[in-house]
Amino acid sequence: MRTILYTLLIVLTIHAKAQNGKVYQIFNQQEKKVDFDKMIKELAKYDVVLFGEYHNNAINHWLQLQTTKELYKIKGNQLKLGAEMFERHQQTELTNYLEGKITDEEFQKNTKLWSNYKTDYKPLVDFAKEKNLDFVATNVMRKYASYVAKNGLEALDTISNDEKGFIAKLPITIDYDAPGYPEMIKMMGDHAGVKAK
């Protein structure tokens, strides 16, 4: 399986590039500028594409949606989506909405959604609904994240077998020295649940 985390640096250009309307710039792993179409051709070669984003940046979400639409033109129904804004236990509600078993209103009422869902995530979910694409709730439930933060990763061994259906298969191995991980831990501070080196 080929996986890529394409580095997307979003540059908000209020003054410098306001004349031509460009509000983002894409860079590859070598920190070279890449245009959108070239990025799509490159991404289409991979089985898994991870899209890093600032959760509250509308430009990120717009670019995420445009990327999805373009990849759909190439991959069709092979394309599967996932988002960390949905926790694993929300999968049934998400799937029911995508399959038309519940209305948008019921979905939003029954599912704890982030405050920017309607503006930033709903267009992606609705695109998946329109195109009959699978959409996976990828995030761990908050209660398990909190439990691990307070008690360590080994604490997951103590939860019931039913609850283990909502988490990754145990044992979970984490490489704390993986590229970018130490920096992420430092950024998260006390929320990380592990100490930065």
Rank of each mutant, 00 (worst) to 15 (best):
G76W: 08
K17I: 10
V194A: 04
I74K: 07
K118S: 11
T7L: 04
L43A: 12
T13A: 03
L79I: 03
M1I: 03
N139D: 09
N110K: 15
K69Y: 06
I14Q: 12
I74W: 07
V34T: 15
M1S: 09
K32I: 07
L113W: 05
Y24N: 01
I14N: 13
H61G: 00
G180A: 13
Y97G: 00
G165H: 01
L79Y: 09
K131C: 09
Q30F: 00
Q64K: 14
D120H: 11
N132L: 01
A192R: 09
A196I: 07
D190H: 12
G100Y: 02
P123F: 11
Y117Q: 00
H191C: 11
Q91V: 12
T3L: 12
G193N: 11
E130K: 14
F107Q: 04
Y147T: 02
N132H: 04
P123H: 07
V125L: 03
T138I: 13
K118E: 13
K122D: 01
Q91K: 01
L156R: 02
A196W: 02
V48N: 15
N161H: 02
T173H: 06
D104I: 12
I172C: 05
N116D: 06
E183H: 10
G52M: 05
K73D: 07
V48A: 04
A128Y: 15
I59E: 09
D47V: 09
K41V: 11
Y97S: 00
T3H: 09
K41P: 01
D175Q: 01
S146H: 10
I172T: 04
Q108P: 03
I40N: 02
A137Y: 09
M39V: 05
Q66P: 09
M85P: 00
D177E: 14
D104H: 03
N20Q: 13
D190I: 00
G189Y: 14
G21C: 06
M187D: 05
N28Q: 05
D35E: 14
A58I: 13
F166Q: 14
I174S: 06
Q90R: 13
K73T: 06
I4Q: 02
I159L: 15
K17H: 15
N139W: 11
A196N: 11
K164W: 00
D177V: 09
T138P: 03
N57I: 07
G152R: 01
L65Q: 05
A192C: 05
D126Y: 00
A178L: 10
Q90C: 08
A178E: 08
L81I: 10
A137M: 08
A192E: 07
N132Y: 04
G165R: 01
A83G: 15
V34P: 07
T13P: 04
G82S: 01
V140N: 05
K169I: 11
D162S: 10
L133T: 08
Y54A: 03
G180Y: 00
K195S: 09
A18F: 01
Y72I: 08
N116M: 14
A44D: 12
H55E: 01
M85A: 13
Y6E: 06
L71E: 08
N77I: 08
T111L: 02
V48F: 08
L65M: 05
I40D: 07
A168L: 12
R142K: 13
I59T: 11
M39K: 15
I59R: 10
W62V: 11
